[in-house]
Design a protein around this nucleic acid. Sequence first.
DNA 1: TTAATAGTTGACTGATTAGTAAACCAAAGT
DNA 2: ACTTTGGTTTACTAATCAGTCAACTATTAA
Lengths: 204, 204
Amino acid sequence: MPRKSDAKERLTDAAMDLMWENSYSGTSVDDICEKAGAKKGSFYYFFKSKSELTAAALEADWKKKKADMDAIFSPTVPPLERFERYLDCVYEGLAERQKQCGSILGCPMLSIGSEVSTQDQVVRDTVDRILDSKINYFISAIRDAHAQGVIVAPDAEAKARALFACYHGTLAQARIQNDLGLIRNFKYVAMDVLGAKQTSTASA
Amino acid sequence: MPRKSDAKERLTDAAMDLMWENSYSGTSVDDICEKAGAKKGSFYYFFKSKSELTAAALEADWKKKKADMDAIFSPTVPPLERFERYLDCVYEGLAERQKQCGSILGCPMLSIGSEVSTQDQVVRDTVDRILDSKINYFISAIRDAHAQGVIVAPDAEAKARALFACYHGTLAQARIQNDLGLIRNFKYVAMDVLGAKQTSTASA
DNA sequence: TTAATAGTTGACTGATTAGTAAACCAAAGT
DNA sequence: ACTTTGGTTTACTAATCAGTCAACTATTAA
């Protein structure tokens, strides 16, 4: 067997990075190749189109994040604390990224998904499926919280969808206004939406 | 004075239409010109760049919508009913548009704003300002509702921001999933987020 | 009627776009 | 040593991109 390469991973990483910061249409194959330190020939050796690379990049990104989510949303941690930890984690990540590029970037899944939804069925389906996986963390945490009587949410799925929407809307606004404070504050908004009595972290 | 033209308006209309359905980067000046029935020379006679045209298009779009919002959020209508009417109106608009192009398009301000935020300061500022105007309708409706004792929201602005985020998040998800039902259902989610006891329209 | 004004047109850059194809190269198995 | 496998590289399309410019034309006020 001949030499093996990590160029494929470098390409998906570069793609995620650029598309997160800019956008799908605003990121060219040449940009991706340059950032990945690969030539265009290599790009099309691994992927048959920009669309397919994007789907692969989103998938790879999710795979990494999923591991963290599994830990954060572990049934061993109290349900409302799962949200607190998750939101802290998101905050940290976005704050870190802001230091590098100067901007709050929001949720790549939502930005990219929203952009391509009318134009690229392959990418859209990928995003759709990933978001669907993601919301399940919310649903079971809410179900557990309800079962433990710490919130009232007979329809856990509906509540999860509301929170999910609120979360994504906040990230989008934080991106537009480049305001990290919106995300910092969201922990309290989330508890309010969930109808939780104030927990360890006090609200304003 | 020589002949006067409506080409400028045709161009901003076409731009909004295309960018709403697709995206900023995904919409070319040539596309806009073709849809508007104008030549590129005319485009650059009226606007000095694609970026400036976009800002003008968003501004013109907002000017039209603002008139409707003023009517819907009139202090003469009961505060919670303002939201119901507004959300019905949004629903109608998106459903209509879906018939034409087959897709739920969400909120153009948010999609475009989110896309260009890291790349185009002129457009970003425009979006930022418009969103800021828009949230004021929410704030005063919530303030009125609180004053009338129909909801409990001592911090009207915070509540408005939460609802605003939830609203935008829902529109974005509806776009990604191409699911009008999310918007249909949002009226009830909104009332829940506001903490309103069930009004005329019953919830699920 | 004429000249200034307001807008239109088409032909043109030069850069960038996604994608292709063939030559090339390095390692590992035989 | 040599061939197969897995990957890289260079050079290339043909289309599209934002933006320019000079020539043209329709209107109207004087």
